[in-house]
Design a protein around this nucleic acid. Structure first.
Length: 643
RNA sequence: GCCGACGUAGCUCAGUGGUAGAGCAACGGUUUCGUAAACCGUAGGUCGUGGGUUCAAAUCCCACCGUCGGCUCCA
C-alpha cells in the first residue's frame, strides 16, 4: 500500500501501482468523471501516471487552470492527426501550447494551407474528438528502431528530436481507437488528456510561416495557430476579447480619428503625426518635461547625424551595424544617421572635466533615432524605423547609483500611474555572453535590486536576461484590457564609460570611472502613443484630448453668444471645436461622440437667455445647465488632475 | 528578409474576361433644428506600379512596391 497526500492536507491509502485516475475514483465517482489529469508534486501529469509513496496529488478537472495545458496540448495532437489524414504527405514538427491556445508546425510539400483548409481540418478534428481516441503514454524501448521507423515515414523532424532526446527516456503518445488499436502517434513528453472525447470547444485561427527550430536557414514550415477551451462560452468570450482588441487597434482608430499616416512615397515605418495626435504628443511631452525639471534633469539636444568615428568608439559599428543605416559621405568623410542617443550625451559630459561635486548629472532628450527594422516586423506605430525616445543618461558616482535608480523608479511610477497603467518590474541579471567584471555586475545588479526593494516594488528576477553590457530593470505595463506592453527600462551601462573613458575627479584628486545609467520611461513617443490609443480605445482623457470641448449652437440666432463662449474657453487655453455648420444638432453631436470629444456645450435659447451652457459628457451624457464659469472650473480641475 | 493573404473613390466595401458601382465623407442648395445620422443635387477612380496573355484585363500570368498575420515562447 502507498500513502498519498491530498491538497486539503488529508491522506489516502491506495494499493501499490495505483494511478492518479485510481485515486480520483477512490475519492468520488463525480471527481473521476471530471478528472482530466493530475498535479503530482506540483507537476502536471497524465491521469494514468502510477503514484509513489508520499506523492502530493491534486486531481485536475476543467475547473483548474492547469488543465488548459492538457487540453490544448492534446488538441494540438488531434489537429496534427487531422492534418495528416487530409495531407498524408505532411510531416509534423512541433506543437506546443501558447497563451490561450497552441500551434503546430508542418512541412507540407506542394501545398500552401488556406483558410478553406482550416475548415476542413476543423471538421476532421471534430471526427477525431467524436471517435474518443485514447491518448496513451509509451516509453520507447528501442530508440534506434523508433528512429528507423520515423525515418521510414519521412518524419525527419521527429527523428531529429528523438535523436537529441535519446538519453532522456523519450516517450511517444499513442492515439488509439475503441479497440485499443494505435492509429497515430507523436513523439511527445506529454502530459495529455486521457482521451479526445473530453475536448469541447476549439477553433483554428490562422496559418503562418515559421522555420524549423526558429532558424531561418532551416526548413520553412507552415504553422497553424488555434485556440481551445473547455466550454463553448469560454471560446466565445475569447473571440470576443480578440474583437475588442481589434476595435482598439491604433491603426484602425487612426483612420477614424485622423491620428497618423505612413506613406509609400516616404517609406515604411516612418510616421506622420497629424494635428490630433501631435496635440496628444505635445501635451505628453510638456508633462514629461515638467516631471523631469522637478527631478533635477537637464535637457540637451544632439545632432541627428554623426561621423562614423563616434560609432567606432561606441562600438555600435561593431555590434549594432545591422540596425544602422548605411554610411553617407560628407566632404569625403563617412557619416551615419544616429541609432541611439547615448554617444551624444557622453560627448556633452566629456566636453569638460567633471568633479565628483558635479554628479549626478542627468541629461534628458526627446531624441529622434533611426534604426533598420526588417520589413516584415514593421507594425503601425508600434514597430517603426524612425522614432523619438524619451531618453536620459545619468552620470553618477558609485555611491549615488542606488538613489538615482530609486529616483528613476519614482518617476516611472508617477508617469505610468498617471496614464492608468498597472505594471510589474523584472530584474534582468548577467547573461552568459557579457562584458565587464563580476564585481561590476554584482555592484550594479545589487543597486538595482536594492532600489526595487526600498520602494517595495513588486518584481521578478530574470536570470541571465540582461543585455550583454548591462543589468537592467524592465517594466511591463498592463493596459485597460489586461494586455501586456513593453514599458520603461533602466540599465546600468558597464560598457560605454569604458569605451569613451568617461570619468570624474574624485575627492582624492584622482580620475574615477563614472557610473552611467541609461533609461527610457515612455520608450518611444511612437510606441507609447500607439499603445495609449489602444489603452484608451481612442477616447483620450480630457487633459490629452485633441479637442477638449465642442461648442454647438442650435440655430443661427445662437451664434453670437456661442462665439462669446468659444472666446472665453480659448482664453483659458482650452482646445475648442466650434461647430456652427447648418447640420442638425443631432448630427453634430453624433460627430463629436464618434470623435470622442470629452465635452459638448449645446447653446440654445435657454442658454443665451440665462447666460449658461448645457454640457454633455461623451460618456455620462447630459449634465445640468450651468454658468460658463462653473463649466470652466469643472474642466480645468479635470485637466489639472490629468483625467 | 522568409511564408501566406490582401491592395477598386478620402473611408468602408461590391464588382472574376465585355462601357467601373454603393453607402458614408466632400462640394452646392434647401432646412434653423434641444442632445448619436434632415432633404435634394453635384463632383470624385490610369482599379498599388510596371510588363505580359487576349479582339478585349479591375478580373488571367510575371515582376516590383506597400499593407496585414506570423516567423520567441523548445518532443
Amino acid at each position: 500500500m502507498i500513502t498519498i497526500k491530498l491538497p486539503d492536507g488529508g491522506e489516502r491509502t491506495l494499493e501499490k501501482g495505483s494511478t492518479a485516475g485510481d485515486l480520483a475514483k477512490s475519492i468520488s465517482q463525480g471527481l473521476a468523471r471530471k478528472a482530466v489529469g493530475a498535479l503530482i508534486n506540483e507537476e502536471i501529469r497524465d491521469l494514468a501516471t502510477p503514484l509513489n509513496e508520499q506523492d502530493k496529488v491534486k486531481i485536475l478537472t476543467p475547473d483548474d487552470s492547469e488543465s488548459y495545458e492538457l487540453l490544448r496540448h492534446s488538441t494540438a495532437h488531434v489537429m496534427a492527426q487531422a492534418v495528416q489524414r487530409i495531407f498524408p504527405h505532411a510531416k509534423i514538427a512541433i506543437g506546443p501550447t501558447i497563451q490561450d491556445g497552441f500551434y503546430y508546425d508542418f512541412e507540407i510539400p506542394d501545398h500552401s494551407l488556406s483558410t478553406e483548409d482550416l475548415q476542413k481540418i476543423e471538421e476532421e478534428m471534430k471526427k477525431i474528438v467524436k471517435e474518443d481516441q485514447k491518448l496513451v503514454r509509451y516509453n520507447i524501448p528501442d530508440v534506434d528502431k523508433q528512429l528507423d521507423e520515423f525515418r521510414g515515414q519521412g518524419e525527419k523532424f521527429k527523428a531529429e528530436l528523438l535523436n537529441e532526446h535519446r538519453d532522456h527516456n523519450p516517450t511517444l503518445y499513442l492515439m488509439q481507437d475503441k479497440d485499443g488499436k494505435t492509429i497515430w502517434n507523436d513523439l511527445c513528453r506529454g502530459p495529455h488528456l486521457p482521451s479526445t472525447g473530453v475536448i469541447k470547444a476549439f477553433k483554428l485561427m490562422k496559418v503562418s510561416g515559421s522555420y524549423w527550430r526558429g532558424d531561418e536557414h532551416r526548413e520553412q514550415l507552415q504553422r497553424i495557430y488555434a485556440t481551445a477551451w473547455w466550454k463553448e462560452a469560454d471560446l466565445a468570450d475569447y473571440l470576443h476579447r480578440l474583437e475588442e482588441a481589434e476595435r482598439r487597434d491604433h491603426r484602425k482608430l487612426s483612420k477614424q480619428l485622423d491620428l497618423f499616416t505612413v506613406h509609400e512615397e516616404v517609406g515604411p515605418g516612418l510616421i506622420f503625426w497629424h494635428p490630433n495626435l501631435a496635440t496628444v504628443r505635445a501635451t505628453i511631452e510638456d508633462f514629461w518635461r515638467d516631471e523631469h525639471r522637478r527631478r533635477g534633469y537637464q535637457f540637451v539636444f544632439t545632432p541627428h547625424i554623426a561621423h562614423e568615428k563616434l560609432y567606432e568608439i561606441s562600438g555600435h559599428l561593431e555590434n549594432y551595424a545591422e540596425n544602422m543605416y548605411a554610411s553617407m559621405e560628407i566632404d569625403e568623410e563617412p557619416y551615419r544617421v544616429k541609432p541611439m542617443n547615448c554617444p551624444g550625451h557622453i560627448m556633452i559630459y566629456k566636453s569638460r572635466l567633471r568633479s565628483y561635486r558635479d554628479l549626478p548629472l542627468r541629461f534628458a532628450e526627446l531624441g529622434t533615432v533611426y534604426r533598420y527594422e526588417r520589413s516584415g516586423v514593421l507594425h503601425g506605430m508600434l514597430r517603426v524605423r524612425g522614432f523619438t525616445q524619451d531618453d536620459s543618461h545619468i552620470f553618477c558616482r558609485p555611491d549615488q547609483l542606488e538613489s538615482e535608480v530609486g529616483g528613476i523608479l519614482d518617476l516611472i511610477e508617477h508617469l505610468m500611474s498617471t496614464f492608468g497603467y498597472t505594471y510589474k518590474a523584472y530584474l534582468a541579471t548577467r547573461p552568459e555572453k557579457s562584458l565587464g567584471t563580476t564585481e561590476e555586475w554584482e555592484f550594479a545588479t545589487t543597486a538595482l535590486e536594492n532600489a526595487l526593494k526600498s520602494r517595495k516594488m513588486d518584481y521578478e528576477v530574470e536570470e541571465g536576461g540582461g543585455a550583454f553590457y548591462a543589468p537592467k530593470i524592465d517594466i511591463k505595463l498592463f493596459d485597460a484590457i489586461g494586455r501586456e506592453w513593453q514599458g520603461p527600462t533602466v540599465q546600468v551601462d558597464l560598457n560605454l564609460p569604458n569605451r569613451f573613458d568617461v570619468t570624474y575627479i574624485g575627492d582624492d584628486g584622482n580620475r574615477h570611472k563614472v557610473v552611467m545609467v541609461h533609461r527610457a520611461v515612455l520608450g518611444s513617443m511612437e510606441r507609447f502613443c500607439g499603445g495609449l490609443i489602444e489603452h484608451y480605445a481612442g477616447a483620450f482623457p480630457t487633459w490629452l484630448a485633441p479637442e477638449q470641448v465642442a461648442v454647438l449652437p442650435i440655430a443661427d440666432r445662437h451664434q453670437e453668444y456661442a462665439n462669446e463662449v468659444v472666446k472665453q474657453l480659448q482664453s483659458k487655453m482650452l482646445r475648442v471645436k466650434f461647430d456652427d455648420r447648418a447640420e442638425t444638432i443631432n448630427y453634430r453631436i453624433r460627430e463629436c461622440q464618434v470623435e470622442q470629444v470629452p465635452y459638448m456645450l449645446v447653446i440654445g435659447d435657454k442658454e443665451v437667455e440665462n447666460k449658461t451652457v448645457a454640457p454633455r459628457h461623451r460618456r455620462q451624457g447630459n449634465l445640468s445647465p450651468m454658468p460658463l464659469t462653473e463649466f470652466i472650473d469643472l474642466i480645468e480641475t479635470e485637466i489639472k488632475e490629468k483625467k
